[in-house]
Design a binder for these strands. Structure first.
Lengths: 199, 199
DNA sequence: GCAAAGAGTGAATGATGGTTCAATCCTTGC
DNA sequence: GCAAGGATTGAACCATCATTCACTCTTTGC
């Protein structure tokens, strides 16, 4: 024998793989999913089109991972912000502020992650994204119910509905590129009422 | 001259056009937007593929009309149900019950109208659909605020958030084909709280 | 019945863009 | 240096449909 995969090569391979995912994310942030042909992503990553298929069996698999990565980053940021707060009311405010602040920072990406028409296989990943948010929030809601800060309710349903409300309220502003000054405070009020936070 | 469009022909044309729209709706209700190739729709309507283009310049135009028609029907049904009620609380309950009842009756169609990945040009029509719901609800909310039944709030934002919550809460059940027995009542409770309906 | 012109047809066309693969380049161990 | 194999390339391939168009069928007014 004369060739055997070595650490150095493995590292280069995984670096290359990551560069492709990062490039896909950047192209998506710049031109939406619609602008993400495999050729465009490959060029942005500085590899040949065919090389993408060394790492991902199909385009859908690549973008499933892109969505997973980006979603995780978003959920983590939101979770980190909420973890600093003590009451459910504050935690949920932090969720909304962080979510919408980040979305407005990269509206194209946020739109792609939330609502842009994508391949059905990638769409499935979107549901995971939304469920991750819902589960994060459901935890806070459940704690709030247990401590008596919130009235009795189904934390899962509350969280799901809350994610829907948040996403829907942001789609308009995302299309416009900015939110009106009262959008975020109004949304917080709405959601505090929905949770049953005592005034 | 020897041929001139006559009433009889005009009627046949518009009947044919309607049959195409109806066929598209049926195919969509059966196999989702994904199953709606122009050929499949044409066959279902009993016309040749090319004939579709006698009535619609592009597939996107056809489905824009399909979405518009179906959405109008849904919004009308919801509006009719809500109009029979006196208080905002009852009106909104009627909206939720009618919306989710109809969605669960034709889950494939509801999924296509609400969330399935479609051509971006058709997606635009979806926003109109959601805005129509939001405006209907905003009217009730505004009236409730004016009469003092609801606390002060931005009716437009409340309605938008409410539509998002409703849609999101239904996506899971639609995928499963049924809603858990407590989904609808829980959702009504959530939304009553969100509106600030006094208990 | 007939000529004119619109309506209807459906196989062929064409655009798009994901996927493949023969050729080439690198890396490895000796 | 070299042979064995893996990695990389990117132009060619191909599948999918939306769209077209040359042709046929109907309708119309005379």
């Amino acid at each position: 024998m004369a060739y055997r995969s070595t650490e150095r090569v493995k590292a280069r391979l995984s670096a290359s793989r990551e560069r492709i995912v990062a490039a896909a994310l950047e192209v998506m942030a710049g031109h939406g999913y619609a602008g993400c042909s495999v050729a465009a992503v490959a060029e942005h990553a500085g590899v040949a089109t065919g090389s993408v298929y060394r790492h991902f069996p199909t385009k859908a698999d690549l973008f499933a991972e892109v969505f997973r990565t980006a979603s995780q980053r978003e959920v983590d940021a939101v979770a980190r912000a909420a973890a600093l707060r003590a009451t459910v009311a504050e935690q949920v405010s932090a969720v909304i502020e962080t979510f919408s602040g980040r979305a407005l920072q990269s509206p194209r990406l946020a739109y792609a992650l939330l609502a842009e028409p994508v391949d059905p296989a990638v769409d499935a990943e979107r549901l995971v994204f939304r469920r991750a948010y819902a589960e994060l929030i459901a935890g806070y809601v459940a704690a709030g119910v247990a401590s008596g800060e919130l009235p009795p309710q189904d934390p899962g349903l509350t969280a799901t509905a809350l994610v829907g409300a948040l996403a829907e309220a942001m789609v308009g502003p995302l299309a416009a590129g900015v939110a009106g000054p009262s959008t975020i405070p109004s949304l917080i009020m709405f959601i505090h009422r929905a949770l049953g936070v005592s005034p």
